[in-house]
């Protein structure tokens, strides 16, 4: 799988003004497999970090390495990096523009020079992973429901076959079934296409369900990075930075206070039930 690494990366907005804000402060980390969740409350620096991953923002200090190569080694080639690191922004459905769903999905690969039969294959395969049925390919994207539009926008990025896929709040505003569809589709895509995925989200419940690893940002720094259980077991750290832990994690913490210890790594309901029954049932 493709890897992306940050080495002592910093970025400051309004550098020469009194209102300067350091959004990312000396961050080093490496992501090289599976699905990684990036959490942190508004203003923690996660959006800035994400925009640096595909070269939309150039770090003031430090290096960003894609598969070991500095992405800014030759600034003229940064466009290639944007094809390799696909970024799905927040509310991407507002960025649809083409006459048909098909054309919208094809826009990215076309710009990469893919055409003819290969282009059709690419569009169909991207539509498949995003859960778009063939019937709607010929429709206008503006006739679709919010959830469908979101999937079209996602397909547009998947169609460029990025080595690394970055998604900013992919499930925001969707109902529970819509969230499961889109996040489940991303998981399948990551597995089958062997693609490293980074998801930014506020929803701890979703992150717990779909991510392998979690990175927590607060005040421009990474304050925790590990597997879901390693990170969610530090619920005091999470709550102190203004993040919400899943309700089930709070239940487990309260149970522990009452002398029922089912472990610190509780973040899904099924796991909590299993642990409790295994340890305490007569």
């Amino acid at each position: 799988m493709a890897s992306i690494e940050l080495k002592n990366v910093s970025y400051t907005y309004n550098k020469s003004l009194p209102s300067k804000i350091t959004a990312v402060d000396d961050v080093s980390l490496k992501i090289d497999s599976g699905i990684t969740g990036l959490i942190g409350h508004t203003g923690s620096g996660k959006s800035t970090l994400v925009q640096m991953l595909n070269g939309l923002i150039k770090p003031d200090q430090g290096e960003i390495l894609l598969n070991g190569n500095n992405i800014w080694a030759d600034p003229k080639k940064i466009r290639d990096i944007r094809f390799k690191v696909g970024l799905v922004m927040q509310y991407p459905e507002y960025q649809l523009f083409a006459d048909t769903v098909e054309d919208d999905i094809a826009f990215g690969p076309k710009n990469m020079g893919i055409e003819g039969e290969k282009l059709n294959e690419t569009v169909e395969s991207a539509a498949f992973f995003a859960g778009i049925s063939k019937e709607i390919l010929k429709k206008s994207p503006f006739e679709l429901s919010g959830g469908q539009k979101r999937r079209v926008a996602l397909a547009g990025i998947i169609a460029m076959s990025p080595e690394i896929l970055v998604l900013d709040e992919p499930a925001a505003g969707l109902d529970p079934a819509g969230r499961r569809d889109i996040l489940g589709g991303i998981k399948v895509f990551s597995k089958i296409k062997n693609t490293t995925v980074i998801i930014v989200s506020h929803s701890m419940e979703d992150m717990a369900m779909y991510c392998d690893d979690i990175i927590v940002m607060a005040k421009s720094k990474v304050i925790a990075y590990g597997t879901c259980s390693e990170v969610f077991s530090q619920h005091e750290l999470l709550t102190s930075t203004g993040l919400d832990v899943p309700q089930i994690t709070r239940i487990a913490a309260a149970l522990k206070k009452n002398g029922i210890d089912i472990g610190d790594d509780i973040y899904t309901v099924d796991y909590a039930v299993d642990k409790l029954i295994e340890k305490y049932k007569k």
């Binding site: 709070r250 309260a254 149970l255 009452n258 029922i260 409790l276 049932k281 007569k282």
Partner: peptide
């Protein structure tokens, strides 16, 4: 309320131990 849930669950399970 998560705390209330923990309360009723621990009553049941602490009597088990």
């Amino acid at each position: 309320d998560p705390e209330a849930v923990a309360e009723i669950v621990s009553k049941e399970f602490s009597s088990v131990e």
